[in-house]
Nucleic acid binder design. Structure first.
Lengths: 195, 195
DNA sequence: GCGTTCTTGTCCAAAAGAGAACAAGTGCTC
DNA sequence: GAGCACTTGTTCTCTTTTGGACAAGAACGC
């Protein structure tokens, strides 16, 4: 049986090469000033190959988020009334930014960051909603219940907001500290809404 | 115009991956114990791809020699009666072995070394003959003249002999010193034959 | 303005790689 | 020595990659 879709070895190589090329370029110069051909040259990949996988440069940038969120282990609901298990993504993502943002400086630029964060928000919204729907307690229906889609969108957008603030202020807090800020901001609402 | 033959970007990538995989494997285990599938796994290359480029494992090993000798700059004949410019390859190759042999230890094994040296001898013979034929002085014909093919074969085989001795004795001499040995062995003959 | 040069994104035919199946050989152990 | 697992090298079809051509759109100086 033949491997299908994105499992093909050649595809994986191509995606890796392109992503690594972009990352290493951002480490050297402003994202906005990077031109597709530079990425191709560094990745040693043909032009048409690039466009079979990505719509444009921004699409390539965005695709890295899937790399970050994709392999994130799903949370296991701990027994008890605590609701913070649904914020499982928070600390890992903060830590990821902490590790990588220093190398990037602000060469990503406002436009690049906007694209990145908007996509992060969208993907996080979906991811959280998915996990919430798997949760048993969401089975309880009630007239006044807030739909999980709204809650997940709320959490994702608040997360990105906090992340943005953190970055704008030079990441003076440790990942654990900013994570705590995020949790104290959202947990009360979460408890009230989902109890 | 389309690129042809070995210039294709995909081919270069494949060859590099396979060669690097083999080298890194030799750094870890005996050459004889390395199996094709291990090379494929490490290079992340398909089986059929391997066999479109190489006859077998030995062929891959040998191909590295071309990498070593291929980019070697051709010698420039210095004016004067000195003949040692034709030994231009000697020191670079000794130095190459000096740099890499320590990492390889003796994991290459007697069989691997025999294959390698036999091929090195063959390629060197051709390379030297080629350079000699480009040389002006070889134009001089004479009944007693020794054909350049014989001289190049003599030089190559003596070189490999010295190289072998050097390796067998644990490379106790510096590259410059063993190079000197080689030159003192061959120069008198060279002068006598080609003056 | 206007031409020149660079960039973007699309399309295509041809080449290379993937992977599975296969026969044949090797080596092992029971 | 029969069975089994593994390796080698070949062949096949299908998928991806390639590079060149192209149109359309910046960006630039003159």
């Amino acid at each position: 049986m033949r491997k299908i879709g994105t499992e093909d070895r050649r595809i994986q190589k191509t995606l890796s090469l392109l992503r690594e090329a972009l990352v290493s370029l951002i480490a050297e110069k402003r994202y906005d000033s990077i031109v597709v051909k530079e990425i191709l040259d560094r990745a040693n990949v043909g032009r048409s190959t690039f466009y079979t996988h990505f719509r444009d440069k921004d699409d390539l940038l965005i695709s890295g988020i899937q790399d970050l969120l994709g392999p994130m282990p799903s949370p296991t609901r701990t027994p008890g009334k605590s609701q913070d298990w649904i914020l499982w993504f928070s600390l890992p993502v903060f830590e990821h930014h902490y590790r990588h943002a220093h190398a990037w400086g602000d060469r990503i630029g406002p436009r690049g960051r906007a694209i990145l964060h908007e996509h992060l928000r969208r993907v996080l919204t979906e991811l959280i909603a998915e996990v919430m729907k798997k949760d048993f307690r969401m089975g309880r229906q009630s007239a006044r219940r807030i739909p999980p889609e709204v809650v997940s969108a709320y959490l994702a957008s608040t997360f990105v907001l906090v992340l943005n603030w953190w970055l704008d202020n030079g990441m003076r807090l440790q990942p654990g500290e900013i994570d705590d800020v995020f949790r104290r901001l959202t947990l009360p609402t979460l408890v009230a809404v989902r109890s």
